[in-house]
Simulated assay, not measured.
Amino acid sequence: MSLLFELPETPSIPIVGVDSRFPVQRIFCVGRNYEAHAREMGSPVDREAPIWFTKSAAAVCHSGATIAYPPGTTNCHYEMELVVAIGAAGFRVAAESAVDLVFGYASGLDMTRRDLQNIAKDKSCPWDTSKDFENAAVLGPITPAARFGEVASQRITLSQNGAVKQNASLAELIWTLPELIADLSRMYHLAPGDLIYTGTPAGVGPVAPGDTLEGAVEGLEPVRLTIDPAE
């Protein structure tokens, strides 16, 4: 049986120090995982369970890209995040062993159509169109876990046109990496190729055509993005 049409190749991310690439299967994202960011958004901090949403693999955008200002919005925001790349299968894993599933880490941008998100919040509707769109999951190269070490108090920063906008420590995460992986594995059979965006610190803000963004997590390759005028 033949396919009616061919689908695009599976998106993949370069890996620091090796020739192989990391194929992306699914993208899971955590909302409100830094207290200061939750406050700046006027949202309560939920300490009962992480708040999850997803992006499709079609949203992947490579670091260094220049993209058109996203359609359907007049208020697109940057959100700098630590991204976790899953390299082993796991289901209902304990937090104590959760990091055993991790292949590596990357710097990432969770681009957000904030005006659409605010409308969705006001109507108690899903965030899909505000979070899952073309070029909404920007990713730098993946650094293997053994090379990066333990997620602890590394700095996470973002600069817009050279001015620092976000500057925090990974120690400020409300839900730690082991807790996030364990919680997600209760709802999904995690598999190699899955990515987890772990949340953004305070300081998010709008982008405009002509902007250049550079985000970094201490010990990882930076992520860069340039915004062109809308199509």
Rank of each mutant, 00 (worst) to 15 (best):
3 L>P: 04
5 F>I: 06
9 E>L: 09
11 P>M: 14
12 S>L: 09
14 P>I: 05
15 I>S: 10
16 V>C: 07
21 R>T: 15
21 R>A: 15
24 V>H: 04
32 R>P: 08
38 A>T: 03
40 E>I: 07
40 E>M: 03
42 G>D: 01
48 E>L: 12
48 E>R: 15
49 A>G: 05
52 W>C: 10
55 K>A: 03
56 S>C: 01
58 A>K: 12
59 A>W: 00
59 A>R: 00
60 V>M: 05
61 C>D: 05
63 S>Y: 05
64 G>Y: 04
66 T>M: 12
67 I>G: 01
67 I>K: 01
68 A>P: 02
69 Y>F: 12
70 P>L: 06
71 P>N: 13
71 P>L: 12
72 G>M: 13
77 H>S: 00
77 H>Q: 03
78 Y>C: 08
78 Y>E: 04
82 L>C: 05
90 G>V: 06
91 F>W: 11
92 R>E: 11
92 R>L: 08
93 V>Q: 07
93 V>F: 00
95 A>N: 01
99 V>L: 11
103 F>K: 06
105 Y>D: 06
106 A>C: 12
109 L>N: 01
111 M>E: 04
111 M>I: 11
113 R>F: 03
117 Q>Y: 03
118 N>C: 11
118 N>P: 00
120 A>E: 05
121 K>Q: 15
121 K>P: 10
122 D>C: 11
122 D>E: 15
126 P>R: 09
130 S>W: 08
132 D>R: 03
133 F>H: 10
137 A>D: 04
138 V>A: 03
138 V>R: 02
139 L>A: 10
141 P>A: 12
143 T>Y: 09
146 A>L: 15
148 F>W: 13
154 Q>G: 00
155 R>L: 11
157 T>N: 01
157 T>M: 09
159 S>N: 06
160 Q>K: 14
161 N>I: 04
163 A>P: 00
168 A>E: 09
170 L>F: 02
172 E>T: 05
175 W>G: 03
176 T>C: 05
184 L>V: 04
187 M>F: 11
193 G>M: 10
195 L>T: 08
196 I>V: 09
197 Y>L: 08
200 T>L: 02
201 P>E: 01
203 G>R: 00
207 V>R: 00
214 E>P: 04
215 G>Q: 06
217 V>Y: 02
218 E>S: 12
218 E>L: 10
223 V>M: 13
230 A>Y: 10
